[in-house]
Design a binder for these strands. Sequence first.
DNA 1: CGGGCCTTTGACTGGTTTCAACTTCTGTGG
DNA 2: CCACAGAAGTTGAAACCAGTCAAAGGCCCG
Lengths: 191, 191
Amino acid sequence: MLLQFLEHIRNFTEFKKEDFERIQEYFDIGMYGKKDIILSAGSKCTYNYFVLQGCLHMFFTGENGIQRTVQFAIEDWWMTDNLAYQKGKNTDFTIQAVENTTLLKISRENQEELLKEFPALETYFRKIYEISYGASLMRMKYAFDFTKEEMYCHFTDSFPEFAQRVPQYLIASFLGLTPEYVSEIRAKRRS
Amino acid sequence: MLLQFLEHIRNFTEFKKEDFERIQEYFDIGMYGKKDIILSAGSKCTYNYFVLQGCLHMFFTGENGIQRTVQFAIEDWWMTDNLAYQKGKNTDFTIQAVENTTLLKISRENQEELLKEFPALETYFRKIYEISYGASLMRMKYAFDFTKEEMYCHFTDSFPEFAQRVPQYLIASFLGLTPEYVSEIRAKRRS
DNA sequence: CGGGCCTTTGACTGGTTTCAACTTCTGTGG
DNA sequence: CCACAGAAGTTGAAACCAGTCAAAGGCCCG
């Protein structure tokens, strides 16, 4: 399963297989069950997480107590609260496993050292963040451009397998609408 | 004014002043008047822009013809459609000057070469995107957590000088509400 | 001084949330 | 293997936030 991580890196930058042994030493591996909490709101955000297998979501709890999902991560995605991670500060977000999940985690200090030892990985991370940032702007675009109903339809049409994979109330939470309204849209679509 | 660019880089990574001469050769400088278009929707996105002086905004035009601002850039900020820029594809977005603006621009090929010649800049860009991505997630958080009225109040309270600097209808466009509703909120606040 | 762009005001509308009750699904222990 | 409790999904009615439309007022710049 770790080799998949190597292959993933190689999609973005050249990297020698023999160096991969050294890389692994910077990471810890972790296994979590469905609904386990990986990072709690209010705690210090010291790790960056890479999903080998499974699914995570990151959410915050609003004034009213409602949980809002900010992003998902499945296989080959990174996840952390970047702002808090960079500065080693407390986070507002919680990261939770949606399914049984295996992940790699690396501390900020280790990541800095890793990048010093293997500068090729600077390129890798730069590209990863470039993409993530671009994707985040596209999501803003959709949030503006579409009505809630269109957002839901667009999302389920774009990622049908993923929409199957996670419970509906999480998709509602991710798209910023109520579970009840999702029901209504689905009912309308069925007929 | 170019030295400010050097200083900015040095906030994120070590960089020798004597190398700065070489750097400049990778960039073009551009000057634009208020409302000038820097990048048009539908055209190829070949440049990454850095604001030396002034203010840009990036927007798209929705089905209904309404323009929605996705982000602003003022002094020391980068702006481009990252997804399109990376792949050299056509963009959905338009970049326009909000004020008279002086900027540096660099093509994708030049940026790749620049990064090869000065790997220290990989660190710089990685950190820039890390921050941008984190900030973008925070913005999603606000979009979810707040009502439109709260969004407006939070924004103007957080960035009072910026709220003065750009016209109200752009702030409305950025926050995803109508100019009319902004008026209503302001009227309510005054009393 | 004039024209066009920006902002304001008010009435009306509807997409979406809220609330509460009911049904269906899921998994865990006896 | 069934029973049952809690979680997830559905339905319908009432309320409201925010958008739309239209028209008038203010302001900047030529």
